[in-house]
Computed example of a mutant assay.
Amino acid sequence: MEPVIQNQEIPSIKPKQKAKQGPWGMAWKVFKKDKAAVAGLILLAIMMVAMALAPFLPFADPNEVDLTNRLKPVGTEGHVLGTDHLGRDMLSRIIYGGRVSIIVGIIAVTIALVIGSALGLIAGYFRNFYDTVIMRFMDILMAFPYVLLAIAIIAALGPGLMNTMIAVSIVGIPYYARIVRGSTLSFREMEFVLAERALGAGHLHIIFHHILPNCLPPIIVAVSLDVGWMILAAAGMSFLGLGAQPPLAEWGVMLSEGQEFIRVAPHVSLLPGFAIFLVVLALNLVGDGLRDALDPKSK
């Protein structure tokens, strides 16, 4: 008898499917392709690490006065970037001054972000009376030139680093309020929000679990671009004598002190100005990269 061959099913080999990336993974993938943004991120990371580790690195005391070594040029032995009019080490003052300027910018942006986002969510979600009152107040703030409004607030509060942070943060509140309000107006009418509302979800649940997370991409881009502006604004107030006060190492103060010696020792003013330029440039490069990476229309 011939052997009976039973039909056996051959298991099919399915190709391995790649795990789907989330929106943040896709954004990082797009961001990495932008060489300018990556270069800005690396530059910003190097400066932040140097400033964070400044107390543990062999830098001189930024406020140590040595009149025998005043106005030394760049490349002087023991003072790589020279000294200022009081003999203080310029490299040390730039590093420590960067810590003050960047912290001021970050704190000011955080205050403006929290208050502006809260006002934007209330105005965009509840609309009607709340929208009218909040946005007309924002229009009043935006009617004044930013610098003049900041100077007026500092004049009312008094000069000082803390008052400078308060002033530039108040000036930045309308920026975030308008961004968040615009996003909220578009998301509140979408199907997933209407479905949550039909299921009986409360306003706070909808705002914090559905609308606010969807507002994060434009907020992140706005923050990355606004930190540089805040640093410039705070340095400008210090340059005018309204912000940080000598002998504190801060870039705006260093610019103000160095303007008297621009002809005999230009490095005293040029170096802190170049430091501000590098930080703001790096932040803008990163912000442009984030804007392209988080823009859903570009995909």
Rank of each mutant, 00 (worst) to 15 (best):
D89W: 04
V168H: 04
K297F: 01
P23V: 13
L86S: 07
F261L: 05
Y130E: 12
T83V: 02
Q6P: 13
R70Y: 08
R136V: 07
K35Q: 14
T184E: 01
I94E: 07
T132P: 07
I102S: 00
H79P: 00
N128F: 13
V104F: 06
A177R: 02
A27W: 10
M47R: 01
I179K: 00
L199Y: 13
D84E: 01
M142A: 08
Y125L: 07
A293G: 09
L216W: 09
F277D: 03
F129I: 15
E77N: 12
P11R: 14
L157F: 05
R197K: 15
M165R: 02
S269H: 09
F144Y: 01
K14H: 13
L41R: 01
D226R: 14
F208I: 13
S183D: 09
I276L: 09
V133A: 11
L113E: 03
A60P: 09
D84K: 02
A50D: 06
K20D: 14
T110C: 08
A234D: 08
A177H: 06
F59S: 07
P247V: 06
M254L: 04
P272Y: 03
L43P: 00
V133Y: 11
K33P: 05
D34Q: 12
K72V: 08
V30L: 14
A118W: 14
G160F: 05
G124P: 00
K297M: 09
H267R: 07
G120A: 06
G241P: 07
D131Y: 08
L57M: 15
L44V: 00
F192P: 08
Q6W: 12
P217M: 01
M47L: 15
P73E: 02
G252T: 10
A50N: 07
L86C: 05
L57A: 11
I207A: 02
E77I: 12
L240N: 08
K35Y: 14
P23N: 12
G124C: 04
G158A: 05
L281V: 11
R127Q: 15
L290Q: 00
A177F: 04
L149S: 11
W28L: 13
G82Y: 00
I13M: 12
I42N: 07
A37C: 07
P62R: 02
V109C: 09
A37W: 06
N128L: 12
D226G: 13
A118L: 15
A152M: 14
M26R: 15
F261S: 04
A27K: 04
S101I: 05
I219E: 06
K32S: 12
K297C: 05
V227R: 00
A37M: 08
A155P: 03
E191Y: 08
L67G: 08
V104H: 02
I134C: 06
Q6T: 14
Q259I: 14
D139W: 01
V49H: 02
W251G: 03
A235K: 02
R136T: 08
N128R: 15
L278P: 08
V268W: 04
H205M: 13
L204C: 10
R88I: 01
G258E: 03
G228P: 02
P23Q: 11
Y125I: 07
A275G: 04
A118R: 09
D288E: 13
G87L: 05
A222D: 07
F274G: 13
D295W: 01
N7G: 12
D61C: 08
L270K: 09
L270Q: 09
P272L: 02
S12E: 15
Y146I: 11
M254R: 05
V4H: 12
L212Y: 04
P73S: 03
I220N: 04
K33A: 10
V268R: 11
P246H: 11
